[in-house]
Design a protein around this nucleic acid. Structure first.
Length: 513
RNA sequence: GAGGGUGUAGCUCAGCUGGUAGAGCAACGGCCUUUUAAGCCGUGGGUCCAGGGUUCGAUUCCCUGCACCCUCACCA
C-alpha cells in the first residue's frame, strides 16, 4: 500500500531504524555558524576554506549511490548540500539513507563550488534534528530567462489556509508577504511613537460594545455569570483615555465582528485606532497621507504600487471629495438634504434600493457603497458625511446635516475612517438615543447608549481627531494581496475533523451551534 | 442568504456519449561518488468528498449533504 497511511508508516519505520542506530531523531539543540544566505555570501573562489554549520529543512534530494545532493532550507533561503559516504562516514551515510524530504537536519562542512557552478556545502558531518512523519508537497522551480517556472505548485487554497505551516514551508512568496506585514506594523508603530503618541491597550471583553455598526460575538464569564461581548471597536475606551489627559493614544489590536466573510472581511481583524487631542479631521487627513506614504517608502523604498490592474501613487496628495459631490458626480443625482422618500426614489432609479424598510441612513449608505466606492481607485478621501451615518462624529462647522468625517479609499476599498470627535455630551446623548431607537426597532447593528461613555464626555473631552485604519487591508494594499486571507496567517475556516491516528478525515458534519 | 464552479494517489492534474481509474513528481526496490524541475531502470500505491437514487453496471447521470473558490447580497 502507498496510501497516506503507508507513507506515514514507512517514515515511522525509518524512525525506528534510526533509533536502532542509537541516534536521537529529535535533537535538543544544534550549533549553527551561518544561515544559508550567509554561507552563500561567505564563499568566494580562491579564498581560503570556508567552513559552515547550517540547520534547516531538507527540501530536495538527489541520491546517487555513495554521493548525494540535496537542498537545505532555513529562514534565510536555500543552499545545496553534497553528502558523500567517504566524507561523513558509513554510519552517518546510513542515517542519510533514512532521511526524507522535509526532515530537519544539521550539516557541517566546507563551502565549495560544484562543476555546474552552484555554491554547495560539502558535508563532513550530518545531524538529524527532527524526523518528519508526513510528506511535504514537492514543489520544484526552475529559473529560465529570468522567469521563475514553478512545477507542481502547492495551490489548493483550502489546504494552504488550513495548513499554513505547510504553505509557509513550500511557498516562499507567502513568507515574504508575512514578513512585509510585520514590517508594515512596525513602521506604523514607529511613525506614531515618533510623534509622541502612546500605544495603549483597552478591554477586549466588554459588558457593552460600541464604536461601530456591527454585531458582536457573545461570550460568557463563568464566575460572574454574565454575558460579555468581544469588542467591535476600540473607540469609546480610547476616547475615555483622552478625557483622562492622554493627548495622543493609539491601539493596534484585534476587533471582532460577527458578520459574513469574504475577500475583504475576516471575523477577527487588526485595527489601528488613533486619537489626538486638540486636532480635527483635517489634521488627521494629513497624518494618514503622510503615514501611508512613509510606511510604503519604508517597506518598499518607493511609493508606486500596482494593485490588480491599478497603478497607484501613494507619493502624491490624496484626492479630497465631499460625500455628496462624489455621489452627484458618479450617479448624477444630488442627494444632499433630500428626504427619505426622495432618496428611496433615487436609490430605486439607481438600482441599489435596499430590502426592507430602509431609513435615510440606509439609503445614503446603499447609494454610496453601491456606486461610489468601487470607483475610488486612486487614493481618495471622501469627506463630510451625512450625520445619519455617523453618530460619534462632530457636526460640521458650517454645513448643516453633515459631520466632519472622512474615509480613505484606495483601489476601491475602504482603508480608513476618521472624524472630528463629537465632544458635546448632550449632542452625543441625543445621537445615541436615535441609535437606541433604531435598535429598538430591530436594527441589530445600531449602537446602544453607553452611559459611562457619556459620563466621561461630561467630564470633558478636548477637541479630538480620531482615526481607524484596517491594518489587514493596508497590508493587502502594500503587498498586492487580493484577499484578506492572504495576509492573515490563519484566516477563519469552518472546522475540519482530524483523527489522531494520522489519517485525515476529509470532513464531517458539524452540528450548527 | 442567492447564483456559479471545484472536490480523483502524499502533491499537481488527465479521465469522451455510464463498463469500478491514469500521468508526472514524491514513495518503495535495484544500479550508481559532481547532480540539479527529475541521475538511470523497475515496482507499488485509490472509500474517485459523503449519503441516497436511476441502471445489469455510476468516478461519470439525478437528488441531498459537506468543504472550499468566484460573483452578488449582507457588512465598515
Amino acid at each position: 500500500m502507498e496510501s497516506f497511511d503507508s507513507l506515514r508508516a514507512q517514515r515511522i519505520e525509518k524512525l525506528e531504524k534510526i533509533r536502532a542506530l542509537e541516534i536521537q531523531p529529535y535533537a535538543y539543540r544544534f550549533n549553527r555558524t551561518h544561515r544559508a544566505q550567509e554561507a552563500l555570501a561567505a564563499y568566494s573562489p580562491g579564498a581560503g576554506e570556508c567552513r559552515v554549520s547550517l540547520a534547516g529543512r531538507l527540501m530536495s534530494l538527489r541520491r546517487m549511490g555513495k554521493a548525494s545532493f540535496g537542498h537545505l532550507m532555513d529562514e534565510s533561503g536555500r543552499i545545496q548540500i553534497y553528502v558523500q559516504e567517504k566524507e561523513v562516514g558509513p554510519s552517518s551515510y546510513e542515517l542519510f539513507r533514512l532521511l526524507d524530504i522535509g526532515d530537519i537536519i544539521g550539516v557541517e562542512g566546507p563551502v565549495f563550488e560544484t562543476r555546474t557552478g552552484e555554491i554547495t556545502v560539502a558535508a563532513k558531518a550530518l545531524t538529524l534534528l527532527s524526523k518528519t512523519l508526513r510528506p511535504l508537497p514537492i514543489v520544484k522551480e526552475k529559473i529560465q530567462d529570468d522567469e521563475k517556472i514553478v512545477y507542481d505548485a502547492f495551490v489548493d487554497k483550502e489546504m494552504r489556509y488550513r495548513r499554513r505551516y505547510v504553505d509557509l514551508v513550500v511557498n516562499s512568496d507567502v513568507k515574504r508577504t508575512f514578513i512585509l506585514r510585520s514590517r508594515i506594523l512596525a513602521a506604523v508603530r514607529r511613525f506614531l511613537e515618533d510623534r509622541g503618541y502612546l500605544e495603549v491597550e483597552t478591554p477586549v471583553l466588554q459588558t457593552q460594545y460600541g464604536g461601530a455598526f456591527a454585531r458582536p460575538f457573545v461570550t460568557h464569564h463563568n464566575t460572574l455569570d454574565m454575558q460579555l461581548y468581544l469588542r467591535i471597536a476600540d473607540e469609546l475606551y480610547l476616547k475615555r483615555l483622552v478625557v483622562g489627559g492622554f493627548e495622543g493614544v493609539f491601539e493596534i489590536a484585534k476587533d471582532f465582528r460577527n458578520e459574513g466573510m469574504d475577500r475583504d472581511h475576516n471575523p477577527e481583524f487588526t485595527m489601528l485606532e488613533l486619537y489626538v487631542a486638540y486636532e480635527d479631521y483635517f489634521f488627521m487627513m494629513n497624518l494618514v497621507e503622510e503615514m501611508i506614504r512613509h510606511v510604503c517608502l519604508t517597506v518598499h523604498g518607493h511609493a508606486l504600487l500596482r494593485f490588480g490592474d491599478a497603478e497607484l501613487d501613494l507619493g502624491k496628495p490624496w484626492q479630497r471629495i465631499p460625500f455628496f459631490d462624489a455621489v452627484r458626480e458618479i450617479s448624477g443625482f444630488d442627494c444632499y438634504q433630500k428626504n427619505p422618500d426622495e432618496l428611496r426614489q433615487i436609490a430605486a432609479r439607481l438600482n441599489v434600493l435596499p430590502d426592507g424598510k430602509p431609513g435615510k441612513a440606509d439609503l445614503l449608505d446603499a447609494i454610496f457603497s453601491g456606486l461610489v466606492e468601487p470607483r475610488l481607485q486612486q487614493p481618495t478621501f471622501v469627506i463630510d458625511y451625512p450625520i445619519e451615518l455617523s453618530p460619534l462624529a462632530k457636526k460640521h462647522r458650517s454645513l448643516p446635516g453633515l459631520v466632519e468625517r472622512f474615509e480613505g479609499y484606495v483601489a476601491g476599498k475602504e482603508l480608513c475612517n476618521a472624524f472630528s470627535e463629537l465632544n458635546d455630551p448632550l449632542d452625543q446623548r441625543r445621537r445615541l438615543e436615535e441609535q437606541a431607537a433604531k435598535r429598538a426597532g430591530g436594527d441589530e447593528e445600531a449602537m446602544a447608549i453607553d452611559e459611562d461613555y457619556i459620563r466621561a464626555l461630561e467630564y470633558g473631552l478636548p477637541p479630538t481627531a480620531g482615526l481607524g485604519i484596517g491594518m489587514d487591508r493596508l497590508v493587502m494594499l502594500l503587498t498586492s494581496s487580493p484577499s484578506i486571507r492572504d495576509v492573515i496567517f490563519f484566516p477563519h475556516m469552518r472546522p475540519e475533523s482530524i483523527s489522531g491516528s494520522g489519517e485525515d478525515v476529509k470532513e464531517q458534519k458539524s452540528d450548527a451551534v
